[in-house]
Amino acid sequence: MQISSGKTFKLQPLVFQGPCKSNAINFRLLGKISAPDKNEWAENKKEKWVTFKEVNNLIVYGSGIIEGSGPTWWKDVESERPTSLAFTSCDNLQLKSITSINSAKNHISISSCIGVTIFDVTLIAPDDSPNTDGINIAGSSQVNLFDSFIGTGDDCVAINGGCSGINITNVKCGPGHGLSVGSLGRNQVNEEVEHVYVKNCTFNGTQNGARIKTVPTSAVEVSNVKFIGFHGSAIKEKAIKLNCSEVKGCNGIVLEDINIIPAIEGKNLEVVCNNASGTVQHTTPPVSCLVAKP
């Protein structure tokens, strides 16, 4: 399928449903697709705009633009806003060189997929646009994201329960909330996230860098997590925050080669450390609750 260059198409919600007989499915975006505004969605009640489901070996690429008509939704924070692009049970998925702007909610959602490659994508929304995650990943494995720009009003990347083998490299993030694992442990559900690697990423003007979020009253266990080579400035006073569950705590935390300075000159930075254990080395501001390594 191809969206031709120089053309703009307003699309009502649609679903591309597999399984497909072909070994390779190409969706080539050269023009522009535009979502209906909020008033045009009134009778639809759908949570996703464009959905691909059970379409394996799918390639979505092109220099066109995906316009989510977000400004018509953002003032009504409680409304059932749609995700722009959703991929469910799409194994061996590739997303490359696409641009998504002004999504009503998430720009891209990846759910129950195995083997995903995302590169050279641009995802943009204003910093005050609510819940406009760049990429939201759930129940998926072997996901590789690299060489991309994500600047939104929420998480640049959100990694939820059931994910493993997530590799994020050379991603420029900001504005937004940074890169987040969780929230985990809602409704006392047992969730696992493992083997998440973040390398050579830039966070500019984000509320956080990288964070793990758990529900405070849950029994989620966070262990063997390493934060190495974080350098930059912090807008918030709490530059490092290890606020772990009272039930399980955080164990085996490693902070190494970290240098965070205040974004505003003369402002003091703080460290929050509750129910956490591990080691710290060459880290500014100092983290006194962890064991210092020479």
Score class of each variant (00 low, 15 high):
Ser233Gly: 11
Asn259Gln: 09
Glu194Pro: 00
Pro216Ile: 01
Ile228Glu: 10
Cys244Val: 06
Ile253Asn: 01
Leu255Arg: 10
Asn190Lys: 14
Gly205Pro: 07
Glu237Arg: 15
Ala210Ile: 13
Lys241Ile: 07
Glu246Asn: 13
Lys213Asp: 15
Lys248Ala: 08
Glu256Asn: 15
Val225Pro: 09
Glu246Val: 09
Thr217Asp: 14
Ala219Lys: 12
Lys226Gln: 11
Glu237Met: 13
Cys201Tyr: 01
Asn243Trp: 03
Glu192Ile: 07
Glu237Ile: 12
His195Val: 07
Ser218Phe: 02
Lys248Phe: 03
Gly209Trp: 00
Ile240His: 04
Phe203Gly: 01
Glu256Gly: 02
Ile228Ala: 03
Gly229Lys: 09
Thr217Lys: 09
Val225Gln: 03
Tyr197Arg: 14
Gln207Ala: 12
Val198Glu: 00
Ile258His: 03
Ile258Ala: 06
Lys236Gly: 11
Asn204Trp: 02
Ala210His: 02
Phe230Ser: 12
Cys250Ser: 12
Cys244Ser: 08
Phe203Gln: 09
Lys238Arg: 13
Val254Thr: 13
Val215Ser: 01
His195Trp: 07
Val198Ile: 15
Val220Thr: 13
Glu191Leu: 04
Lys248Pro: 02
Arg211Tyr: 06
Gln188Asp: 15
Lys226Gly: 05
Lys226Phe: 06
Ser218Lys: 05
Gly205Asn: 11
Asn204Asp: 14
Gly252Phe: 01
Gly205Lys: 02
Leu242Gln: 03
Gln188Phe: 14
Asn200Tyr: 12
Asn251Phe: 07
Ile258Tyr: 08
Lys213Thr: 15
Thr202His: 12
Glu246Gln: 10
Leu242Asn: 07
Ser233Ala: 14
Gly205Ile: 03
Asn251Tyr: 08
Phe203Glu: 09
Asp257Gly: 04
Asn208Asp: 15
Gly229Glu: 02
Asn204Gly: 08
Phe230Ile: 12
Gln188Ala: 15
Gln207Phe: 11
Asn204Ile: 04
Lys236Ser: 14
Gly205Glu: 11
Val247Gln: 12
Gly229Ser: 02
Val198Cys: 02
Gly232His: 03
Thr214Asn: 00
Gly205Leu: 08
Gly209Val: 00
Lys241Glu: 15
Asn208Ser: 14
Gln188Ser: 14
Asn243His: 07
Gln207Lys: 14
Val198His: 05
Thr202Ser: 13
Gly252His: 05
Ile235Thr: 15
Val215Gly: 00
Lys226Val: 09
Asn190Thr: 13
Gln207Thr: 09
Ile258Asp: 02
Lys248Asp: 07
Gly232Ser: 08
Ser245Asn: 01
Lys226Ile: 10
Lys241Trp: 06
Ile240Cys: 03
Gly249Cys: 10
Cys201Phe: 02
Val198Gln: 01
Leu255Asp: 04
Val220Pro: 00
Leu255Gly: 08
Ile212Tyr: 01
Val189Cys: 11
Cys250Thr: 06
